[in-house]
Computed example of a mutant assay.
Amino acid sequence: MPGQQPTPWGQPPPGGYGIPPAAPVKKTGGRIALIVTLVVLLVLCPCLGLAGWAVWKIADPSDDVAPRPSSSAPVFPPALPSDAPPSAAPTPDREFARGDCVVNEGTEENAELRKVPCGPNTYQVLLRIPATTDGDRCETLAPQATANYVHDNSVDLFDYVLCLKKR
């Protein structure tokens, strides 16, 4: 054809046989979507893992507490009578763990718990629920509890609830 450049044998002329050449296809949209998806997964996976760990730590499946009939329980254990015999030397440790026994040396409104050896007129810690001040959680997580103690710290991460059972 006149005006066209010669081509090697067997190849169509540039622009084909009257058909305009196709524009090159850019493949950046798929790469961007892949990068966004990977970033979202990298951010969500650790967050979901931490949330699962927190739920697992709060709901301790090794609790061997049995359901109890519903009754109104005091929010804080009452103080021991003043004529109660002194117990063995208490530990000054302020951290209370499952199985520890405590007495209240304060009032019902302003409890001051102290660790003591387990015995009559003490409260045994059935469960410690971290990072909360919701004492009602003892009803579902430790239904055998007869009282609870709420520790409200100015830093919410250090809040906790103790589910207690009168011995």
Score class of each variant (00 low, 15 high):
residue 50 L to K: 09
residue 58 I to A: 12
residue 90 P to N: 07
residue 152 D to E: 15
residue 18 G to A: 05
residue 118 C to A: 04
residue 57 K to S: 13
residue 121 N to D: 15
residue 49 G to E: 00
residue 69 P to H: 07
residue 65 V to A: 11
residue 43 V to C: 12
residue 1 M to H: 05
residue 30 G to V: 04
residue 2 P to N: 12
residue 165 K to Q: 14
residue 123 Y to Q: 14
residue 29 G to M: 06
residue 93 D to Q: 10
residue 64 D to A: 13
residue 118 C to D: 02
residue 135 G to D: 11
residue 59 A to E: 15
residue 28 T to R: 10
residue 87 S to P: 00
residue 126 L to I: 10
residue 132 T to P: 11
residue 132 T to S: 15
residue 93 D to E: 14
residue 20 P to C: 02
residue 43 V to P: 05
residue 13 P to W: 00
residue 120 P to A: 15
residue 12 P to G: 05
residue 160 Y to C: 03
residue 32 I to L: 14
residue 112 E to L: 13
residue 156 D to S: 14
residue 58 I to K: 11
residue 61 P to V: 09
residue 39 V to E: 01
residue 92 P to G: 15
residue 56 W to D: 13
residue 44 L to H: 02
residue 73 A to L: 10
residue 59 A to I: 14
residue 151 H to N: 15
residue 165 K to H: 10
residue 66 A to Y: 12
residue 126 L to D: 04
residue 63 D to W: 02
residue 39 V to K: 02
residue 61 P to W: 02
residue 57 K to Q: 15
residue 154 S to T: 12
residue 18 G to E: 05
residue 90 P to K: 02
residue 49 G to P: 03
residue 25 V to S: 03
residue 106 G to S: 10
residue 142 A to K: 05
residue 61 P to T: 10
residue 158 F to D: 14
residue 152 D to V: 12
residue 155 V to Q: 14
residue 1 M to I: 08
residue 28 T to Q: 07
residue 74 P to I: 08
residue 32 I to C: 06
residue 65 V to Q: 11
residue 20 P to H: 01
residue 87 S to A: 13
residue 4 Q to N: 07
residue 20 P to S: 09
residue 71 S to I: 05
residue 90 P to V: 03
residue 76 F to M: 09
residue 98 R to C: 05
residue 117 P to S: 09
residue 97 A to M: 09
residue 107 T to F: 05
residue 42 L to P: 00
residue 104 N to A: 06
residue 118 C to K: 00
residue 107 T to M: 02
residue 23 A to C: 00
residue 113 L to H: 04
residue 93 D to G: 06
residue 113 L to Y: 05
residue 152 D to Y: 09
residue 51 A to V: 11
residue 149 Y to L: 08
residue 163 C to V: 08
residue 145 A to G: 08
residue 144 Q to N: 11
residue 143 P to D: 08
residue 48 L to T: 07
residue 84 A to G: 00
residue 144 Q to V: 03
residue 80 L to I: 04
residue 120 P to R: 11
residue 75 V to D: 15
residue 162 L to G: 11
residue 102 V to C: 01
residue 84 A to S: 09
residue 155 V to R: 09
residue 85 P to I: 04
residue 23 A to R: 11
residue 93 D to M: 02
residue 66 A to R: 13
residue 156 D to W: 12
residue 146 T to Y: 04
residue 12 P to Y: 00
residue 16 G to C: 03
residue 34 L to H: 04
residue 128 R to K: 15
residue 5 Q to T: 09
residue 149 Y to N: 08
residue 17 Y to A: 06
residue 50 L to T: 06
residue 17 Y to P: 01
residue 35 I to Q: 00
residue 84 A to K: 00
residue 131 A to K: 11
residue 89 A to S: 13
residue 16 G to A: 03
residue 107 T to W: 03
residue 76 F to V: 10
residue 91 T to Y: 01
residue 115 K to R: 15
residue 71 S to E: 14
residue 113 L to S: 06
residue 13 P to T: 10
residue 36 V to A: 12
residue 106 G to V: 07
residue 134 D to Y: 02
